[in-house]
Structure formats: structure tokens, C-alpha cells
């Protein structure tokens, strides 16, 4: 009897792994990189962080020009002020992170085994606040959390994305993010993959479509003519809205899992925060 139960549960595990985990996260990442390399053999792996800019020398030159003196520099300075201002107990954000917060962002998101959920860098910043007696910021608030990350993430510029997926809980969260990426949504019926896997480097009316690997490395970004500040999850929300799907909550579990998957797929690529994007 005991033995039968054991065999049955093993079969259950097999069925689960065959269905959801036929490909490991690392295989998934490699396949996604190889697909881009095959279609665009001339684009260097490290240039995937430029996304759509990697397909147009002109657009990249304009970008480089702008980034020499970013017109949104004063916004990053506001973020620096938020980062450097001590909490009421006298402690700082820098005290919450190893190395004073330098070269840490590439380790996020990670799966927290005690909390049984994905922890993003934004959540870690909020944990730092609440631990020091301050109220948490809303992840969707660009004037607080957005600005804070516009500086805090620059402290990890150049660090290679280094997200880890180990253990069943982590795998399940990764799988949930993966499903989100490949699932059709909204009245227009697009998945993220419809464009960013199926039509990488092609032009949608006037804009090149960026590749999946590298997409998670350059946030937050200042976008468009008014340099509006977008965290990665605000971008998810805007994308969902464009395909006419009601967006998920910024900082909620769905987007956190998506960011986990998305960031893992950018592993090995250098971070660069607070850049310009169209």
C-alpha cells in the first residue's frame, strides 16, 4: 500500500515535469539566445541590452548622443537624494545591502524560500524601509519608488544579470512567469512572444521589435518625448493595456513572476539603469 502510494506520487512528479518542465530555465535561455543569433548573426550578444537600437545604427548613434548628457539627469539626482537621505532612525538604504548597494541589482529577483515568493529589487528596497520604521512605497508610484530605483539601480551598472532558479518553489514561479510571456492576452490577442520572439528585429509600423534576452537589463527607462519614467513593471502594464488587456497590479505576484522569468532570460548581460527608450 505504502509502496503503491510512493509509485503513484513518483508518476505524478513525472507527469508534472514532463508537462511544465520539459525544458530547464537554462535550456530555455540558451534556446532564446540561439534563436536571435541565428536570425541576426552580426549582432553581438552583449549588444542585446540595446534592444530595438541594436537593429539600427542611426537610432543607436542618436541614443549614444543623448546619453552623453541625458536630459533626464535631474530626475536621477532626485533619486539619489531619496537614496542618500537617512531614515528617521539615522540608518540608510545602503545599510540594507551588501557593498552599500553596489552591484546587487543583478541578483534580483530571487525566490525567497521562507516567504515562498519572488522578491524583486523594488520589494527589497521596501523591506529596507519597513525594517527601519518607514512606510513602504507603492511599486506603481514613479515619483517615489520609480525615482529611487532610477538612482539605486545605477549602482549596479555593468554588473551581469545573475538570477538563480533553484528548487521547486522557484521553478514554479519561473514557470508561471514563462506562461505569462507566451500566453495570448487582450482583445488584440498578442502574447509577449508574438512580437518579441516571433518577429524579433522586424519593424512594427515604424519601430523595431526588441529581442527577449536583454530586455530586463536597462530599467528604469526614461521614455518618449517627455522622458516619462518607466520601471520594468510599468512597461508590462503599458504593454498589456496596448493589447487591450486589463493590466495586472504593479508589484503583484503575476508581474513579479514575469520579471523573474524575464530577468533570468537576460542572465549574463550587463545592467545599465536609467537609459532613454522610445
Amino acid at each position: 500500500m505504502k509502496r503503491a502510494t510512493w509509485i503513484l506520487s513518483c508518476l505524478g512528479m513525472l507527469a508534472f515535469s514532463a508537462d511544465a518542465m520539459s525544458v530547464s530555465p537554462e535550456q530555455e535561455r540558451l534556446k532564446s539566445v540561439q534563436a536571435v543569433q541565428k536570425k541576426y548573426p552580426d549582432i553581438k550578444f552583449e549588444d542585446y541590452v540595446y534592444g530595438a537600437l541594436a537593429f539600427s545604427a542611426d537610432a543607436k548613434a542618436q541614443y549614444d548622443n543623448m546619453m552623453a548628457f541625458p536630459p533626464f539627469e535631474s530626475e536621477i539626482d532626485k533619486g539619489r537624494a531619496l537614496w542618500e537621505t537617512p531614515f528617521r532612525n539615522g540608518r540608510h538604504y545602503a545599510d540594507c545591502f551588501p557593498g552599500g548597494g553596489k552591484n546587487v541589482a543583478g541578483n534580483y529577483p530571487y525566490y525567497d524560500e521562507t516567504m515562498k515568493k519572488v522578491v524583486t529589487f523594488e520589494m527589497a528596497l521596501n523591506q529596507c524601509r519597513t525594517k527601519n520604521g518607514e512606510a513602504a512605497y507603492k511599486s506603481s508610484d514613479m515619483n517615489t519608488m520609480g525615482l529611487l530605483t532610477a538612482y539605486a539601480r545605477t549602482l549596479s551598472d555593468g554588473m551581469l544579470m545573475n538570477v538563480k532558479v533553484k528548487g521547486d518553489g522557484a521553478l514554479a514561479a519561473f514557470e508561471s512567469g514563462r506562461r505569462f510571456f507566451y500566453q495570448r492576452r487582450g482583445q488584440l490577442n498578442f502574447s509577449c512572444a508574438s512580437c518579441h520572439v516571433g518577429h524579433v528585429g522586424e519593424i512594427l509600423r515604424t519601430e523595431y521589435l526588441s529581442m527577449l534576452p536583454g530586455q530586463a537589463t536597462h530599467w528604469p527607462a526614461f521614455r518618449g518625448g517627455d522622458y516619462a519614467l518607466f520601471t520594468l513593471q510599468r512597461r508590462y502594464s503599458a504593454c498589456n493595456q496596448l493589447v487591450r488587456a486589463v493590466p495586472m497590479e504593479i508589484g503583484g505576484e503575476e508581474y513579479n513572476n514575469l520579471e523573474y522569468f524575464h530577468s533570468y532570460l537576460s542572465n549574463g548581460l550587463p545592467l545599465k539603469a536609467s537609459v532613454f527608450r522610445k
Binding site: 520539459s22 525544458v23 535550456q27 530555455e28 534556446k31 532564446s32 534563436a35 506562461r179 507566451y182 500566453q183 495570448r184 492576452r185 487582450g186 482583445q187 490577442n189 502574447s191 512572444a193 508574438s194 520572439v197 516571433g198 488587456a245
Partner: peptide, 19 residues
């Protein structure tokens, strides 16, 4: 109609998987 179409979409196959 649009709400039920949204729910039915959950059962549509995943797209563009690379494996």
C-alpha cells in the same frame, strides 16, 4: 461577450515557444 472571450483565451495554446 468580451468578458467571456477573455476567459476563453486562457485556454488558447501558448505561442512561439522555442521548444
Amino acid at each position: 461577450e468580451q468578458a467571456s472571450r477573455g476567459m476563453a483565451q486562457l485556454d488558447s495554446p501558448l505561442t512561439n515557444q522555442q521548444h
